[in-house]
Simulated scan of single mutants.
Amino acid sequence: MAEEIPDLHAQERTGTGKGAARQARRDGMVPGIVFGGDADPLPIQIPFNELLKKLKAGRFKSTLFNMKVDGQDDVRVICRDVQRDIVKDLPTHVDFMRLRRTSKINLFIPVEFVGEETSPGIQKGGVLTVIRPEIELIVTAGDIPEKVTVDISALEIGDNISISQVTLPEGAKPTIDRDFAICNVSAPSGLLAAGDEDEEPAETEVIEQTDETVEAEPEEGN
């Protein structure tokens, strides 16, 4: 289970409509709405700087938040839309959806690699190349895994691990249907270069020319 779901602080917004939204923006806030979960929609506003910081951090629409609003119970939410200014590309409105514990959502879950110290390929000088430090999974809101563990202890140089070889947390499945790669162990560049140098150039046999091996020049007129 995840140890901590990040908090997202918001304020309940008084008034609705374009006038109230414009006033919120003048006050340095971004207006928004929280909907779903068998409860009435809740108009909110979030400090512009705080929202912009989280947007720049990435994965905003695939991150589960614990929304804290004064006078309201904490609720788990996920962003469903961010409206932006068409010229400045800055957030002007944000929509959140409440989640039940049984709700299915897409989240990026970090990958932890174990067994590096005993991997034969790495012991021989191979290099672990991480292709996906995170995997997007379909998970249950009430049972979000903290991480996905990938065991690389048996990998030799040239081996790789794909998603089909990974034991995922119970109830989780990838959002991508194809069998994509997670990591591989490759030979170090120095070893590859040394291997190229060890290859001896092919020898060319030199034949001493004699009168018998030199083709006679054609006589003029022939």
Rank of each mutant, 00 (worst) to 15 (best):
4 E>P: 00
4 E>A: 13
5 I>D: 01
6 P>Q: 12
8 L>Y: 07
8 L>I: 14
8 L>A: 07
12 E>G: 10
19 G>C: 00
21 A>W: 01
22 R>G: 01
22 R>K: 14
24 A>N: 06
26 R>V: 05
30 V>F: 08
31 P>L: 07
34 V>T: 08
34 V>C: 03
35 F>L: 08
36 G>Q: 07
37 G>R: 09
39 A>D: 12
40 D>V: 04
41 P>T: 02
47 P>M: 01
48 F>K: 14
48 F>Y: 14
55 L>S: 04
56 K>A: 12
57 A>D: 10
57 A>E: 14
58 G>Y: 03
62 S>I: 10
63 T>H: 05
64 L>K: 05
68 K>D: 05
71 G>V: 03
74 D>V: 11
75 V>W: 00
76 R>T: 09
76 R>D: 04
78 I>R: 02
79 C>V: 14
80 R>P: 02
81 D>H: 13
85 D>C: 04
89 D>R: 14
90 L>A: 12
92 T>Y: 02
93 H>G: 06
98 R>C: 08
100 R>N: 14
102 T>V: 10
102 T>H: 12
103 S>N: 08
104 K>Q: 14
107 L>W: 03
112 E>M: 07
113 F>K: 05
113 F>M: 06
115 G>Q: 07
121 G>H: 02
121 G>K: 08
123 Q>W: 00
125 G>W: 00
125 G>Y: 01
133 P>H: 11
133 P>C: 05
133 P>R: 06
137 L>D: 04
138 I>W: 01
143 D>G: 03
144 I>A: 05
146 E>V: 00
146 E>W: 00
147 K>W: 01
147 K>I: 02
152 I>N: 09
153 S>W: 03
154 A>M: 09
157 I>S: 03
158 G>K: 04
158 G>T: 02
160 N>L: 11
161 I>A: 03
161 I>Y: 02
167 T>S: 15
167 T>V: 13
168 L>V: 09
168 L>P: 10
168 L>A: 10
169 P>E: 08
170 E>V: 13
179 D>M: 09
182 I>K: 08
184 N>E: 02
195 G>R: 13
198 D>Q: 12
198 D>T: 02
199 E>C: 04
203 E>K: 13
206 V>F: 12
206 V>D: 08
207 I>N: 07
207 I>L: 14
207 I>K: 12
208 E>D: 13
209 Q>F: 04
210 T>K: 05
216 A>F: 08
221 G>H: 07
